[in-house]
Simulated assay, not measured.
Amino acid sequence: MSQNSHNMNVFDRLAKKLQRDRTAKNEDYHQFNYIKDEVGNRLSDRVYDINRKFKKGLDLGCGYGHVSRHLTKDAVEELVMCDHSALVLEKALIPEDTTINCRKMVVDEEVLSSSFEPESFDLVMSSLSLHWVNQLPSTFSQIMKCLRPDGVFIGALFGGETLYELRGSLQLGETEREGGFAAHISPFAAIRDIGGLLNSAGFTMLTIDTDEISVGYPSMFELMEDLKGMGENNASWIRKLHLHRDTMFAASAIYKELYGNEDGSIPATFQIIYMIGWKPDPSQPKPLERGTGEISIKDLYRLDEVVKNATENMVKQTAKEITHNLEDDDGKKM
C-alpha cells in the first residue's frame, strides 16, 4: 500500500514504470511484444467494426503503438497517444497513415482528468495497460468524462485466468521447498466484475467478450524471461523480490509435469477481456418498454417450438393475404 494514499493500492506504480523503462532500453525490446501486438491488432479490428469515422481518438497506455500502428484515416482523423513511460512512448510506432494528425503525451492512466479536458474525445482505446491501474473504477469514470456524448470506449485487459499454469506451479514449488508461498503473479480482473464497473461509471450498450491465447515455451524460465521483456513482471506491493534457486527448479519441474506438451514444451495461457462501452446520448437506441415483448422468458426452454409456430403463422397469414388479393383482382376483372 502506498504510504501517501488513503486507498488500498495493489500495485506499485513507480516500480511498474521503472520495469517498463528497462524494456525500452533493451535493443531487442520489440522481440517481446508478440502478445501485445496480437491483441492490439484484434482491438483495432473492433474499431473498424464500428461504422463510424472518429474525429479525435485517444490511445490510453499505448505502449509501443500496438493499436495505433493499425489505424488509418478511415478510422480516426486525429489521434493522441499516451503512456506512463516516456521511454516507451518515445519508441511507440505511430500510424503508417501519415494523414492522421498524431501527437504523443506522457500521461498516467490513473490521473487522466489532469491531462485532458472533459468531452475531449470521440474514441478512447486501451490495450493491455489497465490491469496495472490501482483504482479501475476511478479510471473508467475519468475515461467517461473524457468522452463526448455518444463516444465509445474500446479496451482490452488480461483476465483472471491469465498465467494460471505459472501461478499454480510457483505456489506448489514454493510450498514444497519453503513450506509456504507468496504472490508471484499480479492479480487480474475477473470478467464478471468488468460489466458492473463499466455500468457504475455510466457506460451503456456494453459488449464484453473473452479470448484465450496459448503460447508454447521451452520451459518456465523462457516464459519468465519473456514476461520481464514485456514489462509484465510482478509489480504488486506484496511481491516477493527474490525466488530461491531450488524453488525455481522445483516449480519448473511441476509446471512440465502438470501442463507439459508431448513435445516437451509448456503452454502459457493469456486470457484477454475485450470491452466496448458507450457514453449515453439521446440519439442512441432505447430498450423497449417492459411488457412489450412478444415472447416470454419462461418460454425460452422451448424456443425452437415458439420460432416454428411463429414462422408457420406468418406463412399462413401471408398466404391468406395473397388469396384475398387474388380474389379482389378476379372481382375487378369481372
Rank of each mutant, 00 (worst) to 15 (best):
S2T: 11
Q3Y: 12
M8G: 03
V10C: 04
V10F: 06
F11W: 04
F11K: 05
R13G: 08
A15P: 06
K16S: 13
K17I: 07
T23G: 02
Q31S: 11
D37Y: 10
R42W: 06
K55S: 14
K56T: 11
L58D: 06
D59V: 14
Y64D: 05
V67C: 07
R69E: 09
R69F: 01
T72K: 09
D74T: 12
A75S: 15
A75F: 04
A75H: 07
V76G: 04
E77D: 13
E77V: 05
L79E: 15
V80R: 07
E90C: 06
D97C: 13
C102W: 08
K104C: 07
K104S: 05
M105V: 10
V107P: 06
E109R: 01
E110P: 15
S115F: 12
S115Y: 11
E119P: 03
L128D: 01
L128M: 14
H131E: 11
P137Y: 01
T139E: 01
L147E: 02
R148L: 07
D150P: 14
A156P: 07
A156Y: 03
G159C: 00
G160L: 01
T162N: 02
Y164F: 13
E165S: 01
L166Y: 02
L166V: 05
L166F: 03
R167I: 01
R167Y: 10
G168N: 12
S169D: 07
L170F: 13
E174Y: 00
R177H: 02
H184A: 05
S186D: 13
A189R: 15
I194A: 01
G195V: 06
G195S: 09
G196N: 12
N199M: 12
S200C: 08
D209S: 13
I213G: 09
S219V: 02
E222H: 08
M224A: 09
K228S: 06
A235I: 11
A235S: 15
I238K: 12
M248I: 11
A250P: 14
A251Y: 07
S252T: 08
A253H: 10
I254D: 00
E257P: 02
G260E: 05
G260I: 08
G260A: 10
G264E: 11
A268R: 00
A268H: 00
F270K: 04
I272V: 14
K279V: 08
K279R: 14
D281W: 05
Q284I: 03
R290C: 04
N309A: 07
A310R: 10
T311N: 09
T311R: 09
N313Q: 12
M314K: 13
V315C: 04
Q317D: 13
T318L: 11
K320S: 14
D330C: 02
M334P: 07
